[in-house]
Design a protein around this nucleic acid. Structure first.
Length: 574
RNA sequence: CGGGGAGUAGCGCAGCGGUAGCGCACCUGCUUUGGGGGCAGGAGGUCGAGGGUUCAAAUCCCUCCUCCCCGACCA
């Protein structure tokens, strides 16, 4: 591509609405432009990057046995009502009405793909199957941010596997997991697969593929010694030794109108009370309505165990021993309340906590003397320094971006979508065992740029770069030999299969150098009068900054031998 | 949705009661030619929108819209 024809304008200053470095560089270098908050145009260079991401994803998905197809974005509301997500995802759904009824813009495709496969697959003989799509998806995010990172319109690759058994589903899952590792390797990302919480999509085992980044919206916990890694929502901590705490009498204090950690800390501010010295007691109910109280240090959040739900007002009515806002652990066992304690509670105390009496708290609450715990576990969110559940070494929290997510869905969707079943060898019908596997395709260029840049601009990994080689002709308008040599080099490189961005513009050398570094192609080839007089062209490696000289006659062969990106044969379809 | 900030030329910004400015970018000419060079000339604006105050509003007041940051939320 000749730059004299390319739709491209580079900016010296980043727009003031760009905060993240990746966002600033992608805009400055002319890859993307904002159309509205969270909605972006991919200009020619940005589109090329996106196509390269898609190419890598396609190649690895196809190699793993998944089959690409295309599903509509515009979907009838009824489809979403079947699984209940019309209401559960209401806050992010874009809705519209047409002559055919009410529609939503699909935020994801579990419903439709399940319904589609349900119409095609009825026998165990037809399983397993794995289909995927690369598509725009729409979510009315309350707060789009960081350019491409979190948009309201974005492109995702979603694959869906269908199996006749749980074992089959797990095998399909493993294939996808391995494919994901290859994909993120090729995208040049430093990633960590972490055990994750299933969230609203439902299902069982799942992993997030996290890329450490300062613009990450998530954190994962990582063992500083071993290989344990988990999303903070799912991370567990190891057991702890009981603390050697000073003896303190159990005293009751009148704390009128102060339900809640912050209010009590404020009340006792003259005594230097911190949230971490308080015992947070959260009332939960099990499926039968029985009370369960979870104890965590006051500076931690409770991870509500599966199968339990937070108390509601009528739960408190049925359990007068638990006083809303003033719950304490004392005497709960005697009242028949199951008490769960986070490991960190064993290592702390004496505690300030509720007195089980309106408008009263206690201090000096001591484990073993004043209250007991029926079951220890990981019931609190993890923090830096918590012990690893496997080896006890300190855990660290790592800010990161979710680049991909794989789920074992099980029967979550197939049990709700009509006819999403197959007949087994005995003639019995069962719902499909499903998995789903997402990659944030349009987010990827931002994540990659975040990891691969320097002060001068972008540095694309070879597979992702819009062009493999950036050819600079210096002063061609005043030196016909330079122009002729660069033209020839451009033609020969192109003929040799390299993808070349050719800076044939009539601008000063400094502008070309600055733009080349900003745009970030892996290799720069520089044709100038001085070098040409000696029969050489200069080659610069963008990442290392190293330069060497190539005889003009060897340049094509040398560059063509470099592993690099190539233009996809066909454009993507949207 | 709560808190904070900002909307003036393509981008970055100044001006904050007296009728529109600067840098970069853009156009013309000259000059320069290995790291966003110099000189001269030029074009480009419903000052986010609507209403109000005033002799006079980019500037003061009200309403709305948009955008960004922090938080809440987030398959």
């Amino acid at each position: 591509m000749r730059m004299s024809r390319l739709l491209l304008r580079t900016l010296r200053d980043a727009p003031s609405d760009a905060e993240a470095i990746s966002h600033q560089l992608l805009v400055r270098a002319g890859y993307i432009r904002r159309a509205a908050s969270g909605i972006y145009t991919f200009l020619p260079l940005g589109w090329q990057v996106l196509r390269n991401v898609e190419r890598v994803v396609r190649e690895e998905m196809d190699a793993a046995g998944a089959q690409e197809m295309l599903m509509p974005i515009l979907q009838p509301e009824e489809l979403w009502a079947q699984t209940g997500r019309l209401t559960t995802m209401d806050d992010i759904l874009f809705r519209l009405e047409g002559s055919g009824g009410k529609f939503v813009l699909a935020p994801t495709h579990e419903e439709l793909v399940t319904a589609t496969v349900a119409g095609e697959v009825d026998s165990y003989r037809d399983l397993p199957r794995n289909v995927y799509q690369i598509q725009f998806k729409y979510r009315d995010e309350a707060r789009p941010r960081f350019g491409l990172l979190r948009g309201r319109e974005f492109i995702m690759k979603d694959a869906y596997s269908f199996d006749a058994s749980q074992e089959g589903m797990r095998a399909s899952y493993q294939l996808m997991y391995d494919a994901y590792c290859r994909i993120f390797d090729r995208l040049g990302l430093t990633y960590t697969p972490v055990e994750a919480d299933a969230g609203a999509i439902g299902g069982d085992v799942n992993h997030e593929f996290m890329v450490p980044s300062s613009i990450g919206e998530d954190h994962f916990a990582r063992c500083t010694k071993g290989d344990y890694a988990a999303n903070v929502e799912a991370a567990e901590t190891g057991g702890r030794e009981p603390a050697d705490t000073p003896a303190e009498p159990l005293d009751e204090h009148h704390t009128p109108g102060r339900p809640g950690i912050d209010l009590v800390v404020d009340f006792f501010s003259d005594r230097g009370l911190t949230a971490g010295a308080m015992l947070k007691c959260l009332a939960l109910a099990d499926a039968d309505g029985n009370a369960v109280v979870v104890l965590v240090p006051g500076d931690r959040e409770v991870r509500v165990p599966h199968g339990l739900r937070p108390f509601e007002d009528d739960d408190f009515d049925r359990h007068p021993e638990l006083v809303k806002g003033y719950i304490g652990p004392m005497g709960l066992r005697e009242s028949g309340v199951r008490v769960l304690g986070d490991h960190a509670v064993r290592a702390g105390g004496p505690w300030v906590t509720g007195a089980n009496k309106a408008d009263h708290h206690v201090s000096g609450a001591t484990l073993g003397r004043d209250f007991t715990v029926a079951e220890w576990g990981s019931f609190a969110t993890v923090a830096d320094g918590d012990p690893c559940p496997r080896c006890g070494a300190p855990i660290e929290l790592v800010q990161s971006v979710e680049a991909g997510h794989t789920f074992q869905l099980g029967l979550t969707y197939s049990s709700k979508i009509p006819n999403a079943t197959f007949t087994d060898e005995e003639g019995v019908q069962h719902p499909y065992w499903m998995g789903c596997y997402g990659i944030g395709v349009s987010r990827a260029p931002a994540v990659i740029a975040e990891e691969h840049h320097d002060e001068a601009g972008l540095i694309w990994p070879v597979e992702i770069a819009p062009y493999q080689v950036h050819l600079l002709a210096l002063g061609a308008s005043r030196n016909a030999e330079v122009g002729a040599a660069a033209d020839t080099l451009y033609d020969d490189l192109s003929a040799a299969g390299a993808s070349v961005l050719y800076d044939d513009r009539d601008v000063a050398p400094g502008v070309k150098f600055a733009d080349a570094d900003l745009l970030g192609m892996p290799t720069q080839l520089i044709v100038g009068g001085k070098g040409l007089a000696r029969g050489i062209v200069e080659r610069k490696d963008r990442r290392s900054g190293e330069r060497d000289e190539l005889p003009l006659s060897d340049a094509v062969a040398a560059v063509a031998a470099t592993p690099g990106s190539r233009c996809p044969e066909e454009p993507g379809l949207y």
